[in-house]
Design a binder for these strands. Structure first.
Lengths: 269, 269
DNA sequence: AGAGAAAAACTCATCATGAGAAGAACTTGG
DNA sequence: CCAAGTTCTTCTCATGATGAGTTTTTCTCT
């Protein structure tokens, strides 16, 4: 039985205002919402993730993703976060003092019952991709903040278990890595890891670093230029060829396309 | 500066237990977490979404996605939800009395400041795909529950604005539709819309319904059979050819593969 | 100038795709 | 029963994309 919902037009009745006036939000069991940020970058050809060492309980001293409580309402600490992405960027800059104009994408929300010993905590994870960022400075609520290579965390090629992170952050990081790998296939996201002007070789090295496999340089070059809107020629050339000489590379900027058609697949080769 | 995190091994100190004993969860500003379910199915060749009409304030009488508060702790209404997917299935069965063994996938979390007039509400949206489900029966907290065609909500082909849903559920639904369309391309998800045994034509009709475009029957057939692990032959034939006669179709079941390599692309044609 | 290096262009066999035609298996109407 | 219509399935063929390798161009260093 299909229902034609275009026929009626309910509006807020007078009963609703009184309902809201009588509503007591404190009647609910306490639950907290946090944001955790998986910030990924590439340094000297290797993917790194931004980690902080916890300065406070619980799990003090453990490495963790930068994260913190969402400000649901205006309070003594500051105004409420207008939306979740705002909270993610605020928390990131508080803990690591990094700039906050970056590509941000929601990964998922984790809310298993015992993931935090304090209370029921629902954590919204964000992924952030950025070109060579500076070393983080240590901000409020952390002992230390640093870029850590994936390799050391056991997510480089899957096999090694690696070091555990606080809470369920190991799983969140693994989800982020898989999301980043998959998004490179069908979106132009790889350019988010690069400065405004870059060479095709630099773009290929992003793919190789994130996917952990080598790509055929000539075919990659052909494919990138054949994909409309992926990159635009700047007309400039790179400063120098490689260390031991070599032709100077053409510089490109990110094109307008967000999606790649057809996608760049990793598995078949 | 790369940090070698494999060298130290912090453990919970004695200070942590005392910290947890003194912790007051009520000190935080109230915030609530809800789950909303976008249940999608295909009925007579058209995609439908499951909607309920709100029986309670706020926005009483409006159509909305089935959803409700997550039980963060054990309480008078029942035990706490162990995890978010459990909450989604519980809420769905409470409001629509539908069975709850279905394909569930997290879509995203919405937490803009003024999306709910009662208090700060963070809503985790789930998408659920299912083969021809029965008409829902109206459960607790709803006036009515029904399958509504996408077409009537203005998401069939994008252009028309359609009828508004409560809160920001229109946007959640739009995100779910786009996610479903995109997941058909590179996963074997389409079989989730079908009964255990199905014909290639039925599978093609799922793609056509969700993508809103016709596909070349012969090429689709070839592509499906050439994709390893997508479908497995059952050896059976369908009961009858179409209404006006026709060859009986071979029946297949879903194969083991979750991902399609290479993907089935919609745009190029 | 010559060797080596990196980027870019080219070649070619193979595979995938879009479009259409033809065959196979079934139902219905004469 | 036979012919016509329908649906499913297989086949053909032109075109385009891909994987692998080679060649050309342009640079640095000795």
């Amino acid at each position: 039985m299909a229902v034609h919902v275009t026929e009626e037009e309910p509006r807020r009745e007078q009963g609703e205002d009184r309902f809201l006036a009588d509503y007591d939000p404190h009647a609910f069991a306490p639950a907290a919402v946090t944001v955790d940020v998986v910030a990924l970058t590439i340094r000297s050809g290797e993917p790194h993730v931004l980690l902080t060492r916890r300065a406070a309980h619980p799990q003090r001293g453990w490495w963790a993703l930068p994260g913190g409580f969402v400000r649901a309402q205006d309070g003594p600490d500051g105004p409420a976060d207008p939306d979740l992405p705002d909270a993610a960027l605020r928390v990131l800059s508080e803990k690591t003092l990094l700039p906050t104009e970056l590509h941000l994408e929601q990964l998922g929300t984790y809310g298993a019952r015992d993931r935090d010993p304090r209370m029921r905590v629902f954590s919204v994870a964000y992924m952030l991709l950025a070109p060579g960022l500076p070393d983080p400075r240590t901000g409020r609520g952390t002992e230390e903040a640093a870029w850590v290579p994936w390799r050391e965390l056991g997510h480089g090629d899957g096999a090694r278990a690696g070091r555990e992170l606080a809470f369920d952050h190991g799983r969140v990081l693994a989800d982020a890595v898989e999301r980043a790998r998959s998004k490179l296939e069908y979106t132009a996201l790889a350019t988010a890891f690069l400065p405004p002007a870059f060479t095709i070789t630099a773009l290929r090295e992003v793919y190789q670093a994130v996917w952990g496999q080598d790509l055929h340089a000539a075919n990659f070059h052909r494919k990138i230029l054949a994909t409309p809107g992926f990159v635009e020629d700047t007309g400039e050339l790179s400063e120098r060829g490689g260390a031991g000489g070599g032709r100077r590379a053409r510089l490109y900027r990110a094109g307008g396309a967000a999606l790649l058609h057809p996608p760049l697949l990793r598995s078949t080769q």
